[in-house]
Simulated scan of single mutants.
Amino acid sequence: MNIKFNKQVNEVLKKLMESKENGVIRLEVTAFGCGTPALGLVLDKQRTDDFFIDVEGIPFVIAEKVKIFFKNTEIVYNPEAFIGGFYVHRLHTSSM
C-alpha cells in the first residue's frame, strides 16, 4: 500500500481530524464508470472490516473489498480547484 501526499495535505488532514474524536480518514470509491473508479476521502470512524494504515501520522482506513484500488495513491489538496479541496487518484506506474 502506497499513499503519497505532501506536507500541506498532512497539515490539512490533521486539522480535519481534530473535529472528530477517534476520527480516521476513509479512502473510498465514490463512483465507477469507464476506465478507472472515482476516488475520494471522508472523515469517518474505523469499522471492524476495514484495512488500516498509518501514513506520516495520518490514520487511513479502506474497506477491504475496495482496497485494491488504493495500492498506489496520491492525495492532492487545492481548495480552489477541487470540491472539498481534495483530489484522490491512482498513480500509474510503467511496467517497462
Rank of each mutant, 00 (worst) to 15 (best):
M1I: 15
N2K: 14
N2A: 13
N2Q: 13
I3C: 01
I3K: 02
K4R: 13
K4E: 14
K4I: 14
F5A: 03
F5K: 03
N6T: 02
Q8P: 00
E11Y: 07
V12L: 05
L13Q: 00
L13Y: 02
L13D: 02
K15Y: 06
E18K: 09
S19D: 09
S19Y: 07
K20E: 06
K20G: 03
E21N: 09
E21R: 12
N22K: 10
G23E: 01
V24N: 00
V24R: 00
V24L: 01
V24A: 00
R26V: 03
E28S: 12
E28A: 08
V29K: 06
V29S: 07
T30R: 12
A31N: 12
F32G: 07
G33A: 10
C34A: 15
G35K: 08
T36W: 11
P37H: 07
P37N: 09
P37C: 10
P37K: 06
P37A: 10
L39H: 02
G40P: 03
V42S: 11
V42Q: 09
L43F: 00
K45N: 10
K45Y: 08
Q46A: 15
R47K: 15
T48S: 15
F51N: 07
F52R: 12
F52P: 01
F52Y: 09
I53T: 10
I53M: 07
I53D: 01
D54F: 05
D54H: 04
D54E: 11
V55R: 08
E56T: 05
I58Y: 00
P59E: 01
F60R: 05
V61L: 00
I62Y: 01
I62A: 02
V66R: 08
V66G: 08
K67C: 11
K67T: 12
I68P: 04
I68D: 14
F69I: 05
F70S: 05
F70Q: 06
N72T: 13
N72C: 09
T73C: 06
T73H: 05
E74R: 11
E74L: 07
I75M: 04
I75G: 03
I75N: 03
V76R: 04
Y77T: 04
Y77N: 03
N78W: 02
N78L: 03
E80Q: 12
F82V: 04
I83D: 15
G84W: 05
G84P: 05
G84L: 09
G85N: 03
F86I: 05
Y87E: 14
Y87D: 15
Y87M: 14
H89W: 07
H89Q: 12
R90L: 13
R90D: 08
L91Q: 11
L91R: 09
H92R: 11
S94F: 13
S94M: 12
S95T: 14
M96D: 12
M96E: 14
M96I: 11
M96A: 15
M96G: 13
